[in-house]
Amino acid sequence: MRIAMLGFGSVGRGIAEAVSTKDLGLTITALADSRSAVIDADGIDIRDVLQRKRETGLCGDPAITADDVIGSGVYDVLVEVTPTNADSGEPALGYITRALASGKHVVTSNKGPIALRYDALMQQAASSNVQLRYEATVCGAIPLIQALEMGLAGNTINGLHGVFNGTCNYILTRMTDEGLSYSQALLEARELGYAEADPTYDVKGIDAAIKLVILANSIWGLNVSLKDVDITGIDSLTTDALALAEELDCTIRLIGEIIPEKRVLKVSPRILSKDHPLVVRDTLNAVTVETDMAGEVTLIGRGAGSRETASAIISDILFIRDCYVERT
């Protein structure tokens, strides 16, 4: 099956690497980064493109654009992995809209468009008779959306709570283990590449809140936005507070929580017993889903990273291939 990819940062390269080294039956026929693009209906030579990107900073010809890729028609699924813009969702929102309008399936890792326009995008996909899948937007490699849609099909989902931000989880783990101050732990996270130069999105709980918005809208159709989430970050936590939690045989984690019945939509640092399944270490993510038949189901895994996000994207692509493309 042929895929076109927009975005050639660490996630895009992770996908390209998996497609070129694993026998997945996928061919990349078009590819764009922010300043150039390459289109080849017979399949792009990934090693060539990776080398060109390393040497020139461009993946292809500056005269070709992302819109040319979308309009090229030489693909079955558009993979949209450009950087997230949580305010407008652009340019990704426009890319996704145009691909859906031209009757193409879309797979994205981009939280912006899904958090901002879930309903409209899904309606558009349905009216074009194509799929829009977004597993990679929440909890990286953890197949959460798939588990909710397929694995737990038929269950009533009563609520969920979890650790949705690996950066915060790393900082809290280090503050607990080594007694580091918040700013020391943040500095360490930055040095290891776990935190951005501007860590605001992560440490203030905004990244976790965006994921809750996606889940609230996609699982329950709550039609909420970021301003509806009650958000408290970890940036005013003290090492003393973690030590006090320790006295209770507990620790503190940044927990995102949705309980539709009680109208709870909240990100906040919470006290948890140390043996609670959501007390995961370092950059791991974990989510507990509360259901009527299956009871509580907890998924734990890597929430970020190039290969991990590629895993979620590829799973969505193969799902579309197996369930939609090869059946038609």
Binding site: A245, I271, S273
Partner: peptide, 11 residues
């Protein structure tokens, strides 16, 4: 003041 509450049922 910041209040850190237990996740329901804990501790």
């Amino acid at each position: 003041l910041l209040v850190i509450e237990p996740l329901e049922g804990y501790p």
